[in-house]
């Protein structure tokens, strides 16, 4: 499986930690993406992601339409992956 160019959008407290809205990555599945995210943003490693997996309490959305936590989720070119807190209580 070849790597695809994808955009990660940081929302809520994840954006607070990162300090900006989005970043671009080349990855073929979420496992690789979260590994890269953890490397680029050490402040997220062990907090939101850990060794290529999402930590409990965090959630990914593919293009804002479908939530997933599966590290094996394949990625396609142009995907927007939203990374957010899973708690939506208001």
């Amino acid at each position: 499986m070849s790597d695809s160019h994808v955009t990660v959008e940081f929302l809520g407290i994840v954006r607070q930690k990162v300090g900006h809205e989005q970043a671009e990555f080349m990855a073929s599945r979420l496992y690789d993406l979260w590994t890269l995210v953890g490397e680029k943003y050490p402040q997220l490693e062990g907090v939101c992601v850990v060794q290529g997996q999402l930590k409990n309490g965090y959630l990914a959305s593919i293009d804002g339409r479908r939530f997933t936590r599966s590290a094996n989720e394949p990625l396609s070119a142009g995907d927007h992956i939203l990374l957010l807190s899973a708690d939506a209580g208001g």
Partner: peptide
């Protein structure tokens, strides 16, 4: 801990941009 971080850092209003992005 992490389970209440959203509420401590942004409060419930932190939902606004998330919900907006999700439509």
């Amino acid at each position: 801990g992490a389970a209440t971080e959203k509420y401590r850092e942004l409060g419930t209003a932190g939902n606004l941009l998330v919900f907006n992005r999700l439509g």
